[in-house]
């Protein structure tokens, strides 16, 4: 995962949850929580907006996504005929 939350540092101010362009982050038990890691684009907005240095982005989601084991195009087309 490319964004991590240091729960000990997070004060639950919700700034990052408001500022993530791709809506990756949500609140859970009063702390920031990475709810949709696959939507992250490594843009660093959250990390730069957090005044507590509780978030850390390590560039990599886009690369990881490129190497994902994917369905072939036939498998995507076939979903409804085999279902």
């Amino acid at each position: 995962m490319t964004v991590t939350v240091d729960k000990a540092r997070c004060t639950g101010c919700t700034v990052c949850v408001q500022s993530c362009p791709s809506d990756v982050l949500r609140m859970k038990a009063s702390k920031a929580h990475v709810a949709y890691p696959e939507s992250c684009t490594d843009c660093f907005t959250c990390e730069l907006d957090c005044t507590r240095e509780a978030l850390k982005v390590v560039p990599g989601t886009i690369l990881a996504r490129r190497n994902d084991k994917r369905k072939t195009i036939e498998e995507v087309f076939l979903w409804h005929t085999t279902a």
């Binding site: 696959e38 994917r70 369905k71 195009i73 995507v76 979903w79 409804h80 279902a83």
Partner: peptide, 15 residues
């Protein structure tokens, strides 16, 4: 209840 998830199609289009 069934059908492809957006991510699967997204990967296809990107390729």
């Amino acid at each position: 209840v069934e059908g492809p998830a957006p991510k699967e199609v997204y990967c296809q289009v990107r390729d």
